[in-house]
Deep mutational scan, measured.
Amino acid sequence: SAVVMEEGSPGEVPVLVEPPGLEDVEAALGMDRRTDAYSRSSSVSSQEEKSLHAEELVGRGIPIERVVSSEGGRPSVDLSFQPSQPLSKSSSSPELQTLQDILGDPGDKADVGRLSPEVKARSQSGTLDGESAAWSASGEDSRGQPEGPLPSSSPRSPSGLRPRGYTISDSAPSRRGKRVERDALKSRATASNAEKVPGINPSFVFLQLYHSPFFGDESNKPILLPNESQSFERSVQLLDQIPSYDTHKIAVLYVGEGQSNSELAILSNEHGSYRYTEFLTGLGRLIELKDCQPDKVYLGGLDVCGEDGQFTYCWHDDIMQAVFHIATLMPTKDVDKHRCDKKRHLGNDFVSIVYNDSGEDFKLGTIKGQFNFVHVIVTPLDYECNLVSLQCRKDMEGLVDTSVAKIVSDRNLPFVARQMALHANMASQVHHSRSNPTDIYPSKWIARLRHIKRLRQRICEEAAYSNPSLPLVHPPSHSKAPAQTPAEPTPGYEVGQRKRLISSVEDFTEFV
């Protein structure tokens, strides 16, 4: 048969007729292969192709491409040299491709048809291009793949890379869960390890502090508590009631339409708007009261037996805890006409967050109470924005700035309102402590230090009264110190430094 060459192609190359033996071998191979691939376009007849790359030819070592076609129900084999250009295909004639002069020997084609199974398996396991790669995943090629499931790999992101949580363990979102698992493993320790309690022994800490320079003076030496005195035992138990972190309780009120001037209507609300609910979820963490331990979680007086509701929101960081007394989460009882059960919590909070959804101005004093010092007013606006402002009593104007209003988005509203309420509550605590000038409020841990110092002074006084020969370590507060001759004046800087060093040991009130 003659071949018409394309323009620009090399000279004529004689194409030899395939021997009958080659056709029989390739026909047997075509019957084993699956003929249901995917359909081509209507211009080209339905056909199945599979590209198999052999590394070497037997005796020649030339890479070839073998295409199996099922045109007219008769499979045909096409061998081509890759750099050459194939002729145009037609549905009426068999596929013809040019070969190099080196394939002119018909014996070479017979060798190609009689490829060993080793070469076929190696060509099938190679990388296939384009559409033949999808075909190689079918059941027909499963014989050339190794048996057994593939090893499982770690989760992959859409980009093909490992997620960040699997790369950096410290930033993994499941870090707290692993800590819980470690605690569970520790709890399952053997009885021999049960006595080993991690941490620092208080006796060891005391020993280090006792021999430090801070205890060089007799006034700073630790003293032993009497065991037989019940009054001192009660004082030590009272110390446990003062937490070592700051605590805040903040009221949250929802004002519906037409309720801006009605205290009873505001306290009777059992739910609010959708934006109000989203605002609550951002204030803190939802907790169930019956599962809380009052000595570990500050509840601000809420009952854990269901008297004040089942849930509330709280927030904490390293040095403070805040609980929100939310009116809509507290039960509304029919027998309580004046809502006294709610007001006994909300009316005693220094700061209230008022979500004013009424469309009218909310005035300070609508919720009557002796300790309502500051109101954080949240007014929802259009386009997911809110107006946040402050209202306070006249005696609080020096501590709280009420002249600045803020426009905040719904997303950042819980954070801004919480921070403003916490700052206002700190100012309210300082303002409330002014009624007792001898006990200015600095912080909870300073209050613990003052309680310890008062307890020490009482013990020293009782020891001096029981044994008059012992001198008083600290003179009583009601006694007057003996007159001392004025010492020589020293520079102001040295006096300030000495006073600062003494105050650092005794108390921190002056620095606050």
Rank of each mutant, 00 (worst) to 15 (best):
V236T: 10
A421T: 01
V416M: 08
E228W: 08
N467K: 10
Y383E: 05
G301H: 05
M320W: 14
W445A: 13
E263M: 03
G306W: 05
L449A: 11
I407F: 05
Y254T: 00
D318L: 05
E307A: 13
D361V: 07
D439V: 07
S262N: 14
A405H: 13
L387Y: 05
I319P: 06
S443Q: 09
L286Y: 05
V404I: 09
A424E: 00
S504H: 10
L283N: 00
T402L: 07
K406Q: 12
A251K: 04
R285F: 14
V236W: 07
D240H: 06
D410G: 01
Q293V: 11
I319Q: 06
D410S: 01
S244A: 13
A417S: 05
P486S: 12
C314K: 08
A327G: 06
L501R: 11
S504I: 07
Y465D: 13
K363N: 13
N412G: 05
L264Q: 14
S479L: 08
D334E: 13
Q419C: 08
V378Q: 01
P486G: 12
I407Q: 05
F324C: 02
V404L: 11
R450K: 07
L225C: 15
N425S: 14
G282S: 03
E360R: 06
E488I: 09
H478C: 13
P222I: 05
V388Q: 02
Y493P: 14
A483K: 08
S352Y: 05
L253Q: 01
N220Y: 12
N386I: 00
E510Y: 06
P243V: 06
E278I: 04
C385A: 07
G300D: 15
R344C: 06
T366R: 03
G282K: 04
G300F: 03
M320N: 14
K290L: 04
I440H: 11
Q259Y: 02
G301D: 13
Q293T: 14
G256R: 03
Y441G: 14
F232P: 07
R411G: 10
S469T: 13
S219E: 15
V404W: 11
L299Q: 15
Q429E: 06
G272S: 02
R275M: 00
N356P: 00
I319S: 07
A464D: 13
L472D: 15
R285M: 14
S433V: 10
Q259L: 02
A487L: 13
E461Q: 10
E233L: 12
A327Y: 08
L267F: 08
E270T: 10
R434G: 09
F362R: 01
K337P: 15
G272Q: 02
G306C: 08
L501T: 14
F324L: 02
I242G: 05
D357S: 01
P489M: 14
D291R: 14
R339D: 12
I223A: 07
D317P: 02
G492S: 07
N372E: 05
F508K: 15
K337D: 15
A322P: 02
C385P: 02
T312W: 03
V351A: 03
L289M: 10
T509Q: 11
G282P: 00
Y276D: 00
D317L: 00
L501V: 14
T277H: 12
A405R: 11
L472V: 12
Y383H: 05
L225S: 13
T328I: 00
T366Y: 03
L422P: 00
H248L: 08
N269R: 02
Q293H: 15
A481K: 14
C385G: 06
S469L: 07
P482M: 11
Q237N: 10
I250P: 01
V404S: 13
A447W: 11
P489L: 12
N356F: 00
E462P: 08
K296N: 09
H474A: 15
N386A: 08
M420C: 06
P331K: 08
T328L: 00
H375P: 00
V376M: 01
V416C: 04
N372D: 09
H432K: 05
N372S: 10
R285Q: 15
R458V: 15
E288A: 12
V351W: 00
G272M: 02
S409F: 01
D349A: 12
